[in-house]
Amino acid sequence: MSQEKHHIMSYTTHLIVLGVLLILTAVSVAVTSLELGALSTLVAMLIAGVKAAIVLVWFMHLKFDNKLYTIFTVFVLVLFLLVLYVTFFDYSYR
């Protein structure tokens, strides 16, 4: 099998990505002290989702790799969310 040409991410890019992740962490902690009520869990999950996406896209190289992995990952996440959704057919209406 041929060894495909790989994209090399520079150190600077890594550090920028890390900086964004740290800022998001700080935001997430700060938001907790605000009185957002039911929204606060949603906000926390949204921020976590964005952080996870950043890790997947840059640190795990989904941006540069074969698109197949992105398709797989999205498929797996959708599958999991659907399982969660169907489970709550039970718990939401019990």
């Binding site: 997430s28 907790t32 957002l36 869990t41 926390a44 921020i47 890790v55 997947l56 640190f59 795990m60």
Partner: peptide, 21 residues
């Protein structure tokens, strides 16, 4: 990749356990 997975899991564990409001 494996290590990023460990990181990914923690990214969700952290707000779910430490940042409940």
């Amino acid at each position: 990749l494996y290590w990023h997975l460990v990181d990914l899991i923690w990214i969700f564990l952290f707000p779910l356990f430490y940042l409940i409001h």
